[in-house]
């Protein structure tokens, strides 16, 4: 019997960090999918509740956060691009702007949360608020988690040797763009699609009664 020989490709040309991050992001998609499934099931089990509650969310703050995250995604991509051509100054500037965007996002999220808490609204108010705090909270944790390596890299970039590992920044960039992607779904799902008061004429009609 000849030995079994399986054709395999030991070298994909993908860096380990990048491959690992993409596998992780694939699991992250499934992680958030579970929450979206919960959202759909809870909505189906409570007819009318989501439409009645989503109206109370502040979509203008959420739109501001959407814009902030898109900007920080762009600055992250530009930071990588500049580190690859060894422009340390611009790398530092764009990474700093990305970090600033993350801070801005969290500040606005805090304003939003404290506005709810001050009205006695929390995750236990109803299932809509439960899933709202669960999903936006987990997203916020992801933002904080992304800030840690950003701060570390930014700190390193001020050292004598500077920060030169563009591959690692690219891997962090993948994660950061993913955090932006999650928000791209959270924004319409929570703030827009279940908010009948947004529809033109709805506010005027409500005021007329």
């Amino acid at each position: 019997m000849g030995s079994l020989s399986l054709a395999h490709e030991p070298v994909t040309g993908i860096s380990h960090g990048k491959l690992g991050m993409w596998i992780f992001l694939a699991t992250e998609i499934m992680f958030f999918s579970g929450f979206f499934a919960t959202f759909i099931v809870m909505d189906a089990a409570n007819p009318g509740l989501f439409e009645a509650t989503a109206t109370a969310l502040n979509w203008k703050l959420a739109l501001t956060n959407t814009i902030i995250l898109i900007c920080s995604s762009l600055t992250m991509a530009l930071a990588i691009l500049n580190l690859e051509r060894k422009d340390t100054g611009k790398f530092r500037m764009f990474l700093g702007l990305t970090l600033l965007g993350a801070c801005g996002f969290l500040i606005i999220k805090t304003i939003e949360y404290s506005g709810k808490f001050s009205h006695g609204i929390g995750p236990d108010t109803n299932v809509f608020y439960g899933i709202y705090f669960l999903m936006t909270g987990f997203h916020g944790v992801h933002v904080v988690a992304g800030m840690i390596p950003m701060i570390w890299m930014l700190g390193k970039s001020f050292s004598k040797k500077g920060y030169t590992n563009a591959g690692r920044v690219e891997v962090l960039g993948l994660y950061w763009h993913f955090v932006d992607l999650v928000w791209i779904f959270l924004f319409p799902v929570f703030y827009l699609l279940y908010n009948p008061s947004l529809v033109w004429g709805a506010a005027a009609a409500a005021g007329g009664h």
Partner: peptide, 8 residues
């Protein structure tokens, strides 16, 4: 996406 949410 905001404008689309304003459509009836």
């Amino acid at each position: 996406t905001v404008l689309a949410a304003m459509l009836p």
